[in-house]
């Protein structure tokens, strides 16, 4: 199925990645995120991060099922309660930014199964959804264990040359490459 190796160029020409006109150079994007870091460090004294607020939102969701008392009694949520604060509002902005950018360049479209997945694992929507759910659960659990994700640890701690950021970045990259190799290798 996926015996054919895609070169970077062919990948770039795949349908979903195509709508290219208003896409920017990755170095420019990286520099933009770097400058955004300068701004948030100075103006709001809050580095870019996603999952601390994500876990707060999860606490809000959990309260619907197990009741707010049980959530408040939890040692983790007692430290990170659900509320509309800087972190959770940042998440709202991140989702809106992605959406408006896609709409503005006509790239907003429904995608159930991405191309590279489909080539290897077939077009089944249920299969892709099941694995996406599991993968999502894993990255969130892992981010809380590491006290940050690609943004909060990798970029925001990494740019301060914090040991935690670089340990996380290295571990994530090595295991990500190893897992992708196991998933996509052809015998």
């Amino acid at each position: 199925m996926s015996g054919i190796a895609l070169s970077p160029l062919e990948v770039a020409a795949a349908p979903r990645s195509e709508a290219a006109p208003s896409r920017w150079n990755p170095y420019l994007i990286g520099a933009g995120i770097g400058v955004l870091s300068w701004l948030v460090f100075v103006i709001v004294a809050a580095p870019i991060g996603i999952t601390t607020a994500g876990a707060q939102v999860a606490g809000g969701v959990a309260a619907l099922f197990i009741g707010p008392e049980a959530v408040q009694a939890n040692a983790y949520w007692a430290r990170n309660p659900f509320r509309l604060d800087y972190g959770t509002l940042f998440l709202v902005g991140t989702a809106l930014g992605g959406m408006v950018s896609a709409l503005a360049r006509g790239a907003f479209r429904v995608e159930h199964v991405p191309a590279v997945w489909s080539e290897r694992f077939g077009p089944s929507i249920g299969k892709r959804f099941a694995w996406a759910f599991l993968g999502g659960a894993l990255i969130m659990f892992a981010s809380r264990l590491a006290n940050g994700c690609t943004s909060g640890n990798g970029i925001s701690q990494g740019l301060q040359l914090a040991v935690v950021g670089w340990v996380f970045f290295a571990a994530m990259f090595v295991s990500g490459v190893a897992t992708a190799w196991l998933m996509f290798r052809t015998r």
């Binding site: 993968g135 892992a142 571990a171 994530m172 990500g176 992708a180």
Partner: peptide, 19 residues
């Protein structure tokens, strides 16, 4: 950070995204 990073890489390869 170490164990979290290792788990994170597995999840990211499966999901295809970070948070």
């Amino acid at each position: 950070a170490g164990l979290g990073g290792l788990l994170f890489g597995v999840g990211m390869a499966i999901y295809g995204y970070c948070p």
